[in-house]
Write a protein that binds this DNA or RNA. Structure first.
Lengths: 224, 224
DNA sequence: AACAATGTACTTGTATACTAGTGCTTGACA
DNA sequence: TGTCAAGCACTAGTATACAAGTACATTGTT
């Protein structure tokens, strides 16, 4: 378990949640790994209570399994759940981008354009970390400007299944195409072309498809 | 706060959650009502811990607000959140019913038909409670047969905003149309007509639209 | 040796005690 | 009378103690 510093205003529960998610996504806590509330809490210098609350939250999206009176574990990879996350994201993002075409004003479009401009900058400067952050931010922005923050938050909670296998997949996302996808989407929104925007988004998200069988071969034992 | 019996296998946390949701939906805990963990726990004959865990879960979908070190309250009605719930449901249900047209086998169609048959029975026998239950079950089934149970569960968690104002609205759902809507949807699925199914679902869900202004007039003070 | 019962060491679930932060009340003082 | 400050009564956040259930090892018996 890799730990980073606790933010100053962060509660114990938020810290535990952040640490657990990070470690699960980056496979420092591998699928199937047994989790003990006691062990985790002493590792993080917390009591069981905040750790337990974090585990309960993670179990809601089935990334952690809790067996009452027996133990807890990082969930094995259930490919159907990954597919659910992909499906949900695809459906909602397409609907939101279509909605954005109808409702987005000048300010919103400018915000999106600013974001993409920054992406171009970090693409040239080879800063994949910043780029990933801006990518997430771009999609979050689309939900925000259409007033669907809560929907985003719910969708985001299940996305961890997808994030985990993305981090397993060695194939990096082709950043160049990603950024130009974003550019095209913003242009479609500015032009208020809903059908085009939806189509572009669908194509964009399809780039993240990951070969299940290859992963299964490389990491047997991580799968359900 | 109205309490019903605790199920035998139910944990304290699950019981607290069920009670809180029921009372919020049926306005026994009105919007804006201050909640005290101590008060709630003694009312439910539990300690603070399981009650607190339930409140945290409800705060995730913003139906309960927790102000650290100050207090908690049932959230006022935020119409934008209601709209988010409606939007999310509409988008996902339409996508799922379309998917069902592609993937549903004979067994799945039979399950749906059985459900609708029961709806017809309870419609004739004027049993609105059973009918409501079957209505929920019908929609849950659509997600189940397409392998999207987790998506349903997440969607369902935000639906409470919608359920609350539905219970405020005196206008009962026209059960007759509801049942015939369901019939038509099942037929479209059996005929594998995705476009029709989607259109029918959209029309079906639009029946639940509620007049915001009328509610605002009737219940000022419940709104944000 | 085979097997059954029991003890033990774990787990999560719940209750309770303590910490720290908020806001209001109350009272002293100018 | 007005103002400010100390204290009190509440809150949620956290730590710890205890309860209840599970799995496994160990021991005693046949």
């Amino acid at each position: 378990m890799r730990l980073t510093e606790r933010y100053s205003k962060e509660t114990g529960r938020e810290y535990a949640l952040r640490m657990l998610k990070d470690n699960i996504i980056h496979l420092d806590l591998v699928p199937g790994k047994l989790l003990s509330e006691n062990e985790l809490s002493s590792e993080m210098n917390l009591s069981r209570t905040p750790v337990r609350e974090a585990l309960i939250e993670l179990s809601k999206v089935k990334i952690v399994e809790i067996y009452p009176q027996k133990g807890s574990a990082v969930a094995l990879i259930d490919y159907n759940l990954v597919e659910e996350a992909r499906f949900m994201r695809n459906v909602l993002e397409c609907a939101v981008v279509e909605l954005a075409c109808k409702t987005a004003g000048e300010d919103a479009v400018r915000e999106l354009k600013d974001n993409v401009k920054l992406q171009e900058f970090y693409l040239e400067n080879r800063s994949p970390e910043q780029l990933l952050k801006l990518d997430d931010e771009f999609h979050r922005l689309l939900f925000h400007i259409t007033g669907k923050d809560q929907v985003y938050q719910l969708m985001d909670s299940i996305t961890i299944h997808f994030d985990r296998i993305r981090s397993m997949s060695l194939i990096a996302v082709k950043d160049l195409k990603t950024v130009s996808d974003h550019q095209a989407i913003v242009e479609a929104i500015a032009a208020k072309d809903g059908d085009l925007a939806k189509e572009l988004m669908d194509k964009h998200l399809s780039r993240y498809k990951i070969d299940e069988e290859a992963l299964r071969r490389e990491y047997p034992g991580y799968f359900l």
